[in-house]
Write a protein that binds this DNA or RNA. Sequence first.
RNA 1: GCCGCUGUGGUGAAAUUGGUAUACACGCCAGACUUAAAAUCUUGUGGUAGCAAUACCGUGUGGGUUCGAUUCCCGCCAGCGGCACCA
Length: 881
Amino acid sequence: MDFRLIEDKWQRYWDEHLDIFCADINSTKEKKYILVEFPYPSGSGLHVGHAFSFTGSDVYARFKRMQGYNVLFPMGWDAFGLPTENYAIKSKRKPQDVTKENTEMFKSQMKRLAYSFDWNREINTTDPNYYRWTQWIFIQLFNKGLAYKKEMPINWCPSCKIGLANEEVIDNKCERCGNEVERRNISQWVVKITEYADKLVEGLDKTDFIEKVKQAQINWIGKSEGARVGFKIKDSKEKLEVFTTRPDTLYGVTFMVIAPEHKLALSLGENNEEIKNYLKEARKKSEMERTELNKEKTGVFSGVYAINPINNKEIPIWISDFVLSGYGTGAIMSVPAHDERDFAFAKKFNLEIIPVIKPEFISMDVIEKNVFSTEKDKKREELKQIKLNKLLKGEEPYVEAIGELFNSEDWNGLRVPEKFDVILEWLKNKGIGEKTSTYHLRDWIFSRQHYWGEPIPMIYCKKDGWQPVPEKELPVLLPEVEAYEPTEDGKSPLSKIKEFVNCKCPLCGGDAQRETDTMPNWAGSDWYYLAYCVADKLKSNKLNDIDGDIFSNSQRELKKWCPVDVYVGGDEHNTLHLLYSRFIYQFLYDIGVIPKEVPEPYYKRMSHGVILGSDNQRMSKSKGNVIVPETVADVYGVDVIRMYLMFMGPFDGTMAWNEKTLMGVKRFLERFKNLIDDVIDEINWSTFAQNTENEYPQIKVVVNKKIDKITKEIEHFSYNTAIASMMELLNEIREMRSNPEYSFVREGVDNKVFVLNLKRVKDIVRLIAPFAPYTAEELWYAIWMKENNKSEIDASYESIHVQEWPDIEKEYLVGDKIMLAVAVNGKVREQLEISSEKVRDEKDVLMRAKSLKKLSIWLMGKKIVKEIYVPGKMVNFVLEG
RNA sequence: GCCGCUGUGGUGAAAUUGGUAUACACGCCAGACUUAAAAUCUUGUGGUAGCAAUACCGUGUGGGUUCGAUUCCCGCCAGCGGCACCA
C-alpha cells in the first residue's frame, strides 16, 4: 500500500520540523489555546474514542494555525491511577515502567494519526517535577484552611480496597470495578470545595460553555435558598438547628426529624436500647438503600421534645434515616401537610398534621381537556375545595404549597411564596431564623489508600498535629515498594515502608509520621492546562532550585496563553473534572498566583460525541465490538479514518461505526487525489505564470463560495458538513471537466483555458489539509516539485501545514445569474433566472415572475392580494380566496 | 419528580435571522467495462396516483401565529442524558 510509504515519509519530515506545530511565546500573532482532555495511558492503547476527539481537536488546531494564529495545542499523560496499579500487581512490574511503555505506545500512535501536538510541552502527572506542584497546591489548600482531616463515613470498595468519592460511586457500585460499595469510617483528607460553591456558579457567567454544561454544574452544586431556624430542646440548654426552604410553613411544624448520625441522636443512643439499635441498623445500610425511592419510612422516637419558636408548642423529635446527615444541618422541621415525605412519615407513626396553606394552584392536568373556559374555572374552584377538605382531614398533603396562609396567627392571609421576604424579615426581627443557603455539593474526599498516586505532603506530629511538608522539600517522592497491594486494613502500601513513614516534625523536630494516603487521580488533572504553559520550566528546573512557586514565577507565560480558548472533552467530565479544576483554578487565583486578567480557566467548552460499535452498543472488549484505529489505518490509511470519523455525524453526537460509509470517504479521497494529479499534468509548467489568470470564470464563484462555507463550518466544529461541502466542490469540478463545453485545450494550441488554474488547485489542497494532512502534504509537494522544477525535497520546501488558509475573493461570491423560486400561495410552482445585478430591483423581478408562462395557469382569473419578494431567494403571490 | 436535549427517507444525517425540505454519504435499482467477480464509471432513488407532463400528501402528534413553519408559541406522545428522601 503506498499510503503507508507516504505516511512514513511525512511523519519523519514533521518530526524533523517539529517547530511547525509548536507554540511560540515570542510570536506577535494572536494566540489560540486549544486543549483536548489528556488521556489515561492504558495498556490497550489508543482507542477510537480517543481518535475521534483528538482528530476533531487537531482539525481545529490545524485550521487555526493556517488562519495565522499562534496555536498552543499540547498533549500529556494523566498517568496516575488504578488500572496501572492493578496491572502492576498482577504482572509484578513497576507502575513506573508500565506507564513509560504505555505513554510511548500512545505517543507513537498519536504521531501516526498525525496529531499536530506541541510535543515540546509534553507533560506527565506522574513525573516528580510535575507532582511536586500538585503537592504544593495541596499545601496551599491546607494553609488556607481548605483541607482538613476528618473521620467520616466513606464509600468503601471492598474489591479495590479503596475509599471512593461520592462521584465515583454509581448505583452504589464502584465506578472502576463494578462491585457493591460499603460504608466505612476512615480518617480522610477532605477539601472544602463547598466554600467555593457560589463562586463556581457565578464564574460560569465569564465562560462561554453551552447551556447543558452550565446547567449540569449548577445542578450539581444545587444551591437552595431558605432559612436556618433554631428550635429549643425542652429541658435542655441545647438548640436544634434546621434548614428549611419553607419558613412560611413554621406554624405547620408538628414534629422534627434528625439523621441517625446527628450529634443528638448519637448521645441519646448511648443509654437507650431502642435508639441504639436503630442507629446500628442505619449504619449498616448503604447510601443507596437509604435513599431508595418509595421505600417505607423507618424511624424511632427520641423521647425528647423541641419547642417551636413561633408558638412555643411542644413537638416530638424523631430519628430517621430519610434525613441525610451531610445535607443542611442533618435535622429537619416536618410539615406533613405540605411535604410528601413528612406526610408519609406522619401517617406511618400517626403524628399530627396541621395544614397552613390553602390550595390555590391546581396543576392543569387534573382538569379535563375540552372543557369550556368558564367551566374550567368552575371545575378549578371545585377541585380547590375538594383538595382543601382532604387537606383538613389529613388525607393528603398539598405539596404545591402555593396560596394563602391560614392557621398561622400573624401571618394569616399572606400569599406565599410571594411574601417570603416579609416572613424572613419577621423571623429575623424575632431572632427565630436567619436567611441562608445550602448546597447539594459535598466536600471533596481527597484521600486514596493506594500506591500509584501523588503522596499527600503532610506530616503528623503528636505534639503539633498535622504539618505540611516544607515547600523546599517538595516533592515528597513516591518511594519504590515491594508490593503494591493495599494492606488488609485498607491502608496504602506506603504505610509498610518505615523509611518513608518515619520522619521529623517540621515544626518541633521531634519524631513524626508521614501521611501514607495518596491523592485521587483528579488531582493531577486539576492544573494540567497550566502546566502546559510552563512546561519548559517544569522540565528544566532541578527539583529544588525555584524561589517561590512555579505559577508566580511564570506570569508572562500564564498571561500569554490563558485562558484555554476551546476545551474539547467528554460530557462525563462536565460535573467532575470540570468543576474540580475550576475550583482549583479559582483558588490559585484567589491566593494571587494567577494573572488577575484571567478569572476562569476555560473560555469555551466543546463536547465531543461518542462512537458506538457497529451493533449500536458502547464499545467494550466483552462485546467484541471494539474498533482499533490503528487496524483501520492499516487497511485504509490514516487520512481515511480521520476523515471518516469527522464525517460520521455532528462532532458532539452519538454515532455507530459503519465500515460501509467509510468507503465513501475513501472514494472521495481517491477521486480528490486523482483530480489534482490530473490537473498538475495538464498545467503547462514552463509558462505556468499565465495559468493564474487562465480559467473559466464560473469556477471562481464555485470555489469561492465553497471556501467561504467550509471556513464557517470548521469554525463551528461542523465537520460533517464541511466535508460534505468538499465533496460537493469535487463533484462540481468533476462535472465541469467532463462537460465538453468546458474541456480544456492542451498546450500547443493558442487559447489555453483551464477549468482549474494553479491558484485554485493550491486553494483546494489547502482546504483538505486539516482533515487529511498526509494526502494534502503529498499533493502540495507534487505541486512544489513541478513549480520549482525539483525532483526531491530540500530546505526550501515549505509544508502545506504552515500555509495560509485560502482567502475569499468577496467579488466572486455571487455568480452573474441567480435562480429564484416563484410560489403561489406559498407553494413553489416555477423557477426564475435573473441576473445578479437585478436582485435589488423588486419591481422588475415581480414583473418577470408574473409573466412566466407556467404561472399563468395559477394566476389566471384570480386576483393577486399580495406580492412578496425575498431578495435573492423567492417570490410569492398570494391570491384572493 | 426536577434539569437539559432529541424526534426529518431503507441508513448516518443536511437545511444563515421563518423563505425551493431531504444537501453529502451509505444502501438499493438499472446500465457500461469484464469470460466472470471485485474495483471503477454513468443514471435513478420520500410516499401515493398517472404512460407522461403533473397533482396531492409529507420533518413524532394536535392546535396557534404567518403570505409562508423542520425552524417561532401552546398542549400532548416517544426516546436519550444528568440529578434525585437535598428539607
